[in-house]
Amino acid sequence: MVDIIEEPVGKDKRKIFRVKKEDLIAAMKSFFEQGFDHLSLITGIDRRDKIEVVYHLHSVERNEYIVVKTETINDTVPSVTSIWQSADWDEREQYDLMGIIFEGHPNLKRILLPEGWSGFPLRKNYDLSKVQFVNMDESGNDYASFDPGDGW
């Protein structure tokens, strides 16, 4: 039995559901079967001691919009790519910028930042004073390093 706790609606009058990380896949499957065929957005929020992952689900047919929330303390969350295709790039983006590891994602690598970037910019403890330089290697792929003269 999946534990889905309904929370009071926010300022935008959307229904909010909170599920445990272990129940996420089962809960999402049940939402998908209820007609929520469009995963609009995946957001990671750094709450300092834990990371909150927010899913905005939408049913195109019924025009209903709900919010599903879960949280994690060790940065890992099960991937929902098996349910919605659009989760693929969204999860890659959240991995890239927030450092959430989506278990079971087929191709979890950086999407906006170049390979080798150190740190996750949207984390609250990210050091903005450190400058990193983007270089290109001989096959045309970008990579980041702290040395401006490095690279091709």
């Binding site: 926010g10 300022k11 935008d12």
Partner: peptide, 20 residues
């Protein structure tokens, strides 16, 4: 305070802004 997700129709599609 709180959180809001607002969506609008830009010329490309559903443009959503989620602010906490």
């Amino acid at each position: 305070d709180g959180e809001v997700y607002a969506r609008t129709e830009s010329s490309k599609g559903e443009f959503g802004v989620y602010i906490v």
